[in-house]
């Protein structure tokens, strides 16, 4: 039996239509209804374009004032205390002036000035080196300026630790669970083999709360939107002399420091 060109095209056309139709039918039958769902941000979330902080060290008079800040952060984020500097995991901690601002050291400065403690944390840089080197995009820059960690993706290669000029990242050499004094059941812990750091309190901002360190700082840390010219943080940076850590490296840190207090700012 032979068919002519016209018959062939008819059969081909009909079978194409049937084929496509049945695929669609099978697909729609398989659908469970989950496609109807949508996601959205929490309406209580604080909207902002670029996460920023000003740390006014003159407001932290005693060691206890600073400890309160570290404690507030580390307790709600389940940061373990491993008890030795080699394994240390830290999100917010203390450095001396010399280590905080190595470019601003000078040989004639007083010993007290060089030894002055500073509160340091992840700078949530605008051009973060850690994000550029991460091979799995486990660390990434969010639209709101937070340099975020996706622990699910981290493979523990520690490129980011090598890249970060501020030492803001810690590696979990062992299971941190036994070293957490009191677990916050609302927040996950980390596991052995991932890198962690300050996440800008994204989980608190999402429900309209300020970062934990800001709340515990008693006004010593100003938090706000660096892209909003009317925000308190921008007015502070605009009117007073501030320092950022290692600006020459070009990572554009979003954490600013007020050094001398009011009288010589």
């Amino acid at each position: 039996m032979s068919i002519n060109r016209r018959q062939f095209l008819k059969i081909a056309g009909i079978s194409t239509v049937l084929g496509l139709g049945s695929t669609a039918a099978i697909n729609s039958a398989k659908r469970s209804g989950l496609e109807a769902s949508t996601v959205s941000p929490d309406p209580a979330a604080i909207p902002f374009k670029r996460w920023g902080m000003v740390i006014d060290m003159s407001k932290f008079k005693t060691e206890d004032d600073r400890k309160k800040v570290y404690e507030a952060c580390h307790s709600i984020h389940n940061v373990p205390d491993l008890g030795n500097p080699k394994d240390e995991v830290k999100w917010i901690w203390e450095e001396k002036f010399g280590a905080t601002f190595p470019d601003n050291e000078n040989e004639f400065a007083s010993h007290e000035a060089m030894e002055k403690p500073f509160i340091v944390l992840c700078n949530h840089c605008a051009a973060p080196a850690c994000v550029r080197v991460c091979p799995t995009k486990a660390t990434f820059k969010r639209k709101d300026g937070i340099v975020m960690m996706d622990m699910h993706r981290c493979i523990g290669c520690r490129f980011c630790m090598a890249a970060c000029p501020f030492g803001a990242r810690s590696f979990n050499w062992k299971d941190p669970r036994p070293f957490i004094k009191k677990e916050n059941l609302e927040f996950p812990t980390r596991t052995k083999g991932v890198v962690e750091k300050c996440t800008g309190c994204y989980e608190r901002l999402a429900i309209g709360q300020k970062p934990a360190c800001v709340e515990a700082s008693n006004g010593g840390i100003i938090f706000g939107d660096l892209e909003d010219p009317n925000s308190e943080i921008r007015k502070t940076i605009g009117s007073r002399y501030t320092l950022r850590r290692k600006p020459a490296l070009g990572t554009e840190p979003s954490v600013y420091y007020l050094i001398g207090g009011n009288e010589n700012a």
């Binding site: 769902s37 949508t38 996601v39 929490d42 639209k143 975020m148 996706d150 609302e186």
Partner: peptide, 24 residues
């Protein structure tokens, strides 16, 4: 959605809203 896009409210197919969180 939560970690990467910051969207944490899930609107289910019956219209109820849920906070997308395993622990919470």
């Amino acid at each position: 959605s939560v970690v990467r896009d910051g969207n944490r409210i899930y609107v289910a197919s019956d219209g109820r809203k849920h906070n997308m969180s395993l622990q919470n």
